[in-house]
């Protein structure tokens, strides 16, 4: 992987939670590279630190030690507002629980990142409508999250993650709460959009068959048992 083909570069990442007795070292000295256009699956036992890792890559939390570089930019020196702007423009998130805002209908939820970016309401709406159409929800524009099925909620969440045309998609068990059919639907959607939009994607999953459909699998093992982390492609 040549240097300017790397979208995400982690070097010597450590992260611990808690103080004193209750201190848990979750990640220790972790290195990881994700190439541009790559679709990476992260797997590992529950509690091993997959979400933690994703939050660090997504600038939602700060590392104790180590380097987080996104598209060649060191993010360690950025302040809160700069990190927020970077998340808004460059990153898209999909979480296990849809994490849609209950007060907004599907269209307004999808339009939200554009509103945050300061785009006019009408433009944000138009883009959101087009994207909801792409994810197959053109008849659910004005439904509120509690009026949608789990699979539909997750499709809205995928649309919201992509509305700003990000370059990096981070998904934390995006199908964890869905039945098999809905899971496959959402995963296929993500995979198709990954290809169409030239995305780099990092997907945390428990589902081995899904992981195997990704370009590469990164297996995370508990920090106490091993000193390093294994990336298997």
């Amino acid at each position: 992987m040549s240097e300017n083909n790397v979208m995400v570069r982690l070097e010597g990442i450590s992260k611990a939670y808690g103080e004193g007795e209750a201190r848990i070292q979750v990640l220790k000295g972790l290195d990881l590279k994700v190439g541009k256009g790559e679709m990476l699956a992260i797997v590992g036992p529950s509690g091993v630190g997959k979400s933690t890792l994703l939050h660090l890559v997504g600038l939602l939390d700060r590392t104790d030690e180590g380097l987080v570089e996104l598209d060649g930019q060191d993010t360690g020196t950025l302040g809160g507002s700069e990190r927020a702007r970077l998340r808004n423009r460059m990153l898209g998130f999909v979480f296990q629980h849809h994490h849609l805002l209950d007060e907004l209908d599907a269209r307004d939820n999808v339009a939200l990142p554009m509103r945050i970016a300061g785009k006019p309401a009408s433009e944000a709406r138009r883009t959101a409508e087009a994207l909801l159409d792409t994810v197959g929800l053109s008849s659910r524009m004005t439904h509120f999250p509690d009026q949608l099925s789990g699979g539909e909620q997750q499709r809205v969440a995928v649309a919201r993650a992509l509305v700003m045309r990000p370059r990096l998609l981070l998904a934390d068990e995006p199908t964890g709460n869905l039945d098999r059919a809905a899971s496959e639907g959402v995963f296929r959607l993500i995979r198709d959009l990954h290809a169409e939009e030239n995305l780099t994607s990092v997907i945390v999953t428990h589902n081995e068959t899904m992981a195997e459909q990704c370009d590469r699998i990164f297996r995370l093992a508990p920090a106490g048992e091993r000193s390093g982390y294994v990336g298997v492609s």
Partner: peptide, 16 residues
């Protein structure tokens, strides 16, 4: 609390 975290993840700055 969750909504605020979501808004932050979508790029709403702390000051906003």
């Amino acid at each position: 609390r969750r909504d605020l975290a979501v808004l932050t993840s979508l790029g709403l700055e702390p000051v906003r």
